[in-house]
Design a protein around this nucleic acid. Sequence first.
DNA 1: TGCAATTATTTCAAGCTTGAAGTTTTAAAC
DNA 2: GTTTAAAACTTCAAGCTTGAAATAATTGCA
Lengths: 158, 158
Amino acid sequence: MKPEQTNMTEPMSKARLRLWLQLLKLSSGIEGELRRRLRDRHDTTLPRFDVMAALARHRDGLKMSDLSRYLKVSNGNVTGIVDRLVEEGLALRVAVPGDRRANLARLTPKGEAAFADLAAQHEAWIDELLTPLTDTDTQSMIGLLKKAMTQEARHGSE
Amino acid sequence: MKPEQTNMTEPMSKARLRLWLQLLKLSSGIEGELRRRLRDRHDTTLPRFDVMAALARHRDGLKMSDLSRYLKVSNGNVTGIVDRLVEEGLALRVAVPGDRRANLARLTPKGEAAFADLAAQHEAWIDELLTPLTDTDTQSMIGLLKKAMTQEARHGSE
DNA sequence: TGCAATTATTTCAAGCTTGAAGTTTTAAAC
DNA sequence: GTTTAAAACTTCAAGCTTGAAATAATTGCA
């Protein structure tokens, strides 16, 4: 049986590899720029921003292992990142009634204020970095990305 | 002046943010799976694979700082990754005639053979992980990604 | 009620990553 | 020819990341 072809000129595997490399190029480029801006303008990091974003959506806080699952990173990693947010006064750990093993990570008022500012800027930065795309482009790409994830989800990720 | 709108329902900034989150979800998911497979099946890492891929395209080798620029990672990072490839016998450092500061990193025959195998599997994995996309989807997405990078490139990357 | 299994979190080793400092070498300027 | 600036690479501190081990606590079962 013939392999999947693309216009009889290039196997599908080559086309998909080229797609992957372009995907990586765009996402790495944007992510790198976000990291630089967070560091240079706000003295913080993208992982801390991600944790704050998760906690901002859960005002009562999240258990460490829930945070780990939500962000798809290891428990050990979450421990370290929350440690630093606590050191900065942006989050705190709260005991869970009835379970002395567990605790909740929660944003402080200072953390909530800081995150509100960061979130607005983050949205503006993404808007700027993806300016070349029209609304139609954006909706098309979202559709394609979701289509790509229908199968990819069956290979072990959300 | 009214902000950019999308079908009068959502500002462009929100749409682009949603796009970014989907982009991140797909690329993180695939990258995570590649890392797992490289570790579990080949006892190696994605950064080492990336360095080998760069060196495979330059049979004579690349200078450390050329490698750093090519891969867009810091010199210090490249030093460490090449150290480990050398320890594994997959690469070696070669002196540059006339410049005792510089050296070339180059794949060994063992490294070239190992990379050929990894590259074939890598391509097959990407093909598998992006199976839901038809050739038309793939070409469309490549086009959109490139369009996105026309402006994004002006913000300090590539 | 006691014990084994499981859970929640932290700690740990190893690898990666940045950006700056340090060292050596080369190139440019005078 | 000498001095200064720049280049090439490594080392370093700090942060992130995984997955496994360690510790403490809870749950479930006999």
